[in-house]
Design a protein around this nucleic acid. Structure first.
Lengths: 225, 225
DNA sequence: CTGGATTTCTGACACGATGTCGGCAAAAGT
DNA sequence: ACTTTTGCCGACATCGTGTCAGAAATCCAG
């Protein structure tokens, strides 16, 4: 399950074994991930978690400050996947509408895969000042880039004139909330419904002049890949 | 501070004193509310809370099952204010665009006032199964009514055709998230910015044919009262 | 190998918050 | 005044946390 994680600490020369410590750390993260796939964060306990790894409870504190530290580490893993998918529309070129759609589609896919972790982090965040800030910063980090892209499209005239940042904030919070809501629990919602909904909202807000997209509703080309 | 709360348990005949128990309960809720105006939920503790009331810690458990029970009670108080303000647009008649705007405006106002409590409940929710469900049900309760209104406007032809429920969900989550984000902490965001943003998104999504509203952006009539 | 240094782990402890229970005190009823 | 009801609290057991001193495993030079 974590071939990725094993080698993910520094580009070790070639066949240098990952230190035992790194393995243990990875094992803890794996156990946490697995646990959170099945149970909510509030039921996660250091003792219970470490029982899954076969190590003793104090060992946990050798690698993380506390459960929130673990969540922060898990979030870091998910981060990359998200920024990855969101890229096309952000680094603009080509058709804005097309690119936004593919970005949203990618976002929904990542959300679908990582929904449990995202919900777990979002659940854990309010319990710890530091994690709360990290989480807010993560969500917020998209606000400026989205706002920037909006400003650009406004300059080109394909987006109506309005203060970009608050709207960017609103749209981003919507995405986060809807993804966590739809895909955060074991019985996930319908990917198509979610994508259609947020696509409609984004397009209507940002590209209302593209009547095809908004009024006719972008029929079903671009099933999520 | 809680003249309302004092009399809020049954319509007592006339001048019957509120029972001592009711007073104590109200005092606890007041203390909680006050605390949460200044500090986050994670710092709320039964002991600390009861010190504010002058009563002993066990007394708390005479009136609430636990801190999450208290949060549920506080949420109930806020509920009414919210459904109140949201009413105009939901019970449709008159201009849809106008009414939606006034509903959103009212919503932003309530959010501004009760932001701290809303954030506290939202923070507390993931820590308790029951509260989580109550909170989800509260947010979700608007999904169906909004969806119903959308379906109505679609029938009339002022709203494009699409599956109403997922879009309603998305818009509602956006509202909740943005209100909590903007008004949940002591240094609240700008009411005007928030209102403009969500108004733009709602209008663009639901009433894209109203070019005045959407494209020109509803200039500043209706400053929040 | 092998004894010493380094890395990795753990048993045992102290602490803080929770929720409960039996009984005390204050108020109300007669 | 005295009994009943109502409202309250001291004391306890429990659970999860985070730390620390030292044990065990691993590595490595001689």
């Amino acid at each position: 399950m974590s071939e990725i994680r094993k080698n993910s600490l520094l580009g070790v020369p070639r066949t240098s074994q990952p230190s035992k410590a790194a393995l243990t750390r990875a094992a803890i993260m794996d156990a946490g991930q697995e646990f959170l796939l099945a149970r909510p964060f509030r039921e996660l306990t250091v003792g219970g978690l470490m029982k899954l790894t076969g190590h003793s409870r104090p060992t946990f504190y050798l690698y993380f400050n506390d459960l929130h530290g673990l969540m922060e580490a898990l979030l870091d893993e998910v981060k990359v996947g998200i920024v990855e998918g969101a890229r096309p529309w952000l680094s603009n070129e080509g058709d804005a509408v097309e690119e936004l759609q593919s970005s949203l589609s990618a976002l929904v896919n990542v959300g679908y895969e990582q929904g449990a972790i995202l919900k777990a982090v979002s659940d854990a965040a309010p319990g710890d000042e530091r994690l709360e800030q990290v989480w807010q910063a993560f969500i917020g980090s998209f606000d400026e880039v989205v706002a920037a892209r909006i400003a650009m499209d406004q300059a080109v005239g394909i987006t109506p004139q309005f203060d970009p940042l608050p709207v960017a904030r609103a749209l981003n919070r919507m995405d986060a909330a809807i993804l966590i809501h739809a895909f955060g629990t074991r019985d996930k919602g319908d990917k198509g419904d979610v994508l259609s909904a947020i696509r409609r909202v984004w397009l209507a807000t940002l590209y209302p002049f593209d009547a095809e997209a908004v009024i006719n509703g972008v029929r079903d080309r671009e099933e999520q890949k």
